[in-house]
């Protein structure tokens, strides 16, 4: 059944995808650092959505929609508008190209990022395996 992008069900589906993906486990085995994936307001979306994911050595230990930004202070924050995320999640936009062209923004320890780029790709691949419904 399709789940709405950015919903609690969606972020849980992503957690499941990651925790059952050998490719993600391999690619992210040295990854340390939790994330906010922030969907910035745009169009009908009037308030940001904060998707929290605790990513640790190839596993996703926790994933939920945070009520507001102050709920967590994650090591990494990746943000973009709804339409950019939609393109990335539906594999129409390469996530690294999106980051390199500032269509998505990333803050955090770049050394960790540069040594684990494949992990980022595997996260997006996991997103594309979720049957996602977009509201706009």
């Amino acid at each position: 059944m399709a789940v709405k992008f950015g919903s609690p069900e969606w972020v849980q589906a992503l957690q499941e995808q990651l925790n059952t993906s050998q490719a993600y486990a391999d690619a992210a085995k040295n990854w340390e650092g939790d994330f906010y994936f922030i969907v910035d307001p745009e169009g009908a979306l009037t308030a940001p959505i904060y998707l929290y994911m605790d990513l640790w050595h190839g596993k996703c230990r926790a994933a939920f929609v945070a009520p507001d930004k102050s709920a967590k202070a994650p090591a990494f924050v990746m943000s973009g508008t709804y339409s950019k995320w939609k393109k990335v999640v539906s594999a129409q936009l390469d996530p690294l190209q999106a980051l390199m062209t500032n269509q998505l923004k990333l803050k955090g320890n770049m050394t960790m990022v540069m040594k684990n780029v494949k992990a980022a790709q595997e996260i997006v691949k996991a997103c594309t395996r979720i049957e996602t419904e977009f509201e706009m």
């Binding site: 390199m100 990333l106 770049m110 050394t111 540069m114």
Partner: peptide, 10 residues
Amino acid sequence: LAPDGISPLE
């Protein structure tokens, strides 16, 4: 900056 943190993402 750390030399291994010079990144095209920022």
